[in-house]
Amino acid sequence: MDNILVAATKNQVRSLGAVLSATFALRSSRRTLGLIEELGGLIFMAGGMLALRVMTGAPTHHGMPMAPFLLSGLITFWLFRTTVAQVSNLQSAKATFRSNPRITSLDVLLAKAVVNIFIYTCIGATAFAAAYLTGHSPGLERPELVLVLCLLMGVWAFGFGLCLGAVYLYVPSLKVVVGGILHMAMWLSGIMFLWPEVPYMGRWFFAANPLFHFMELLRDAYFEAYRTALGDWQFLLTVVFVTLALGLMLERVVRAKAQEQTQRPQEETDPFTENMV
């Protein structure tokens, strides 16, 4: 029994390694324009927000330089948004490896999430280093916490994506609604503002918004100048692990349904060979 368990574990590790390698190679070998498009949105948003703040004569925000303040929030939110988009497509997850029985759709989704988290963590590190080296940002106060928060955001996005993917199988039109909600969520996630600026009547909403907790803790870990009064690690960890557990369970429950939609019976007769004997 132990040997079988060890063998199964080794097989799983090999499968995951192979899918990760393939997914990374596929992502990096994709047309250059695709990557530029993906990053273009991020750069455009960051540039626009930054220009607005500079033009209005506000180069700092509560003592935090504007460039790293906006970049940290935007990159983390982009990490969330793109991971959710990649993971929530349960139907086509296995398509890339459809002839390979050792690879499950969960392996593929996990690999996609890992690669996406890795790419955005690298983008974040590059952007923060560039801002620091050009004198636009102080050094990260607690870089390890910033890294942990990025990874945690990725894990949450993975779980959230799985939950959404399961729901999309039954209500495909919900994709459009969720797309709109994610756009709204960006403006309500605290990319451009902090807890002290939140109006009193809306505080209940932001106190229950995990994205806002992420942003608050991120600014706390990044800047010496800011200490959050809201960011709660316990709340965040609970949300992340409950979402992840729910997502993994839902994915397993709806896997057959997802595959059902891609497997169809053949025609009883082949119209091209019907008269050939």
Binding site: K10, R14, A18, S21, A25, N100, R102, I103
Partner: peptide
């Protein structure tokens, strides 16, 4: 080459 590496890795 990359494809062979990936599939070989998958089957150990």
């Amino acid at each position: 080459r990359k494809n062979v590496r990936i599939v070989s890795g998958l089957y150990g």
